[in-house]
Amino acid sequence: MTRSTKAIMRLPLLQWLVIEMAAVITLSLLWLFVSRLAGYSAFIGGLIFVIPNAYFAHRMYRYQGARQAPMMVGNMFRAEGVKLALTAVGFAAVFILMEPVHVPALLFTFAVMVVLGGALRFLIQPKRQL
């Protein structure tokens, strides 16, 4: 067993967060051409994805290594449950508290961020800690 295969992984959480926030801001600026409300709604839609996803990544990498595998899987389930709940609460809060809201901008930005988030994890993968 070499040292490199035993080494734990370093999560590029900050890098993902910065790229995701840059994408959210870019999409919001594009929606600003439609209206100010659309830009604001798009930003909120992006945040509804980014915040639960950051929590999921943080929680999933709390435990690492083969000895911690049961804890790792348990945390993965809990993180996913909390992520879905946070997303539902985020949408509910926006639809109840934010009046008026530009629904197409909100849902479009959210959907784009979901696709982008998956692609980002493929493109920027966690590195081995040296």
């Binding site: 509804i48 997303t87 539902a88 509910a92 849902l107 959210f110």
Partner: peptide, 9 residues
């Protein structure tokens, strides 16, 4: 996740 958004809508 997208389903949750549409359901809340």
């Amino acid at each position: 996740m997208i389903g949750v958004g549409i359901a809340m809508y």
